[in-house]
């Protein structure tokens, strides 16, 4: 029997007061697959991600994580999910090791300290363990956030702008570690990023959203070819231009 998809979202729709943010998105991530969710600002990426994580309830559609349906089986589903976002801060009044220990416990780990040290080690940051949230640079906080996401060896790793504030060498280290986690640990990755080079290097499949809809889904090469552009950045700029033109017509 085949293992269930890491993520299976079907027919997601979300309306806000300002209009429809997500309009019938289908998104499946296979076990171990590395997928990027891309699109210009306002394309519906964050709302889609939040619905997939159970933080926002879709108006229509369903979400299943590792075979567990949201929201009914949220606790079981979340046990297999790691989430990190470059924009989420660390609590000011906690040391890194305390923060990671807490999230390890929330994930049910019996030995959260060991897992925390291993996660920091993986990103070359064991020295951050005793640091307070207020003592770190934004890049270091981002690293700790990613360490938190992989603590419990999740089967689905969801990362929103994971390397946004990292220096190129640290970003490379993160990408390498994420590939390794996916290749050797079998974790599926769902990543959003504005760094197209990073996406091309990390992900084997790209899903482009525009105006709340999936407008392209395939390998980076297939997508660039389909839109007649040299790279993903060209596709991104093309879609952003289309969105601006449509906005002007309205």
């Amino acid at each position: 029997m085949l293992p269930p998809a890491a993520l299976r979202a079907t027919g997601l729709v979300k309306d806000y007061r300002r209009g429809r943010a997500v309009d019938g998105v289908d998104l499946t991530v296979a076990p171990g697959e590395r997928v990027a969710l891309l699109g210009p600002n306002g394309a519906g990426k964050t709302t889609t991600l939040l619905m997939c994580l159970g933080a926002v309830t879709p108006d229509a559609g369903t979400v299943e994580i590792l075979g567990h349906r949201l929201p009914r089986e949220r606790t079981r589903a979340m046990a297999g999910v790691g989430f990190g976002a470059g924009y989420l801060p660390l609590p000011d009044r906690m040391r890194v090791i305390e923060y990671l220990r807490m999230y390890g416990r929330l994930a049910g780990l019996r030995r959260p300290d060991d897992a925390a040290r291993a996660a920091l080690e993986r990103f070359g940051a064991p020295h951050l363990a005793p640091a307070m949230g207020t003592e770190m640079s934004s890049g270091q906080k981002t690293l700790v956030g990613i360490a938190k996401a992989i603590l419990h060896r999740p089967s689905l790793l969801v990362l929103d702008e994971p390397t946004a504030s990292l220096d190129p060498d640290i970003a490379l280290r993160v990408r390498t570690a994420l590939r390794e986690i996916s290749d050797t640990g079998g974790a599926a990755l769902l990543v959003t990023s504005h760094n197209m080079v990073e996406v091309e290097r990390l992900c084997e499949r790209v899903v482009f959203l525009s105006a709340g809809r999936v407008v392209a889904d395939g390998t980076p090469d297939e997508i660039t070819e389909r839109f007649g552009r040299d790279d993903l950045e060209g596709v991104f700029l093309h879609l952003a231009e289309l969105r601006d033109r449509e906005g002007a017509l309205r």
Binding site: A79, M94, E98, M102, R105, G108, L109, R110, R111, H152
Partner: peptide, 25 residues
């Protein structure tokens, strides 16, 4: 292999983790 708590033990440790977090604060 990552060892995890399940059921009531997992709930207990989650409650304790939240209490401890507020203790630090």
């Amino acid at each position: 292999m990552t060892e995890v708590y399940t059921g009531a033990a997992a709930s207990f440790w989650r409650v304790m983790a939240v209490a401890r977090r507020h203790g630090y604060v």
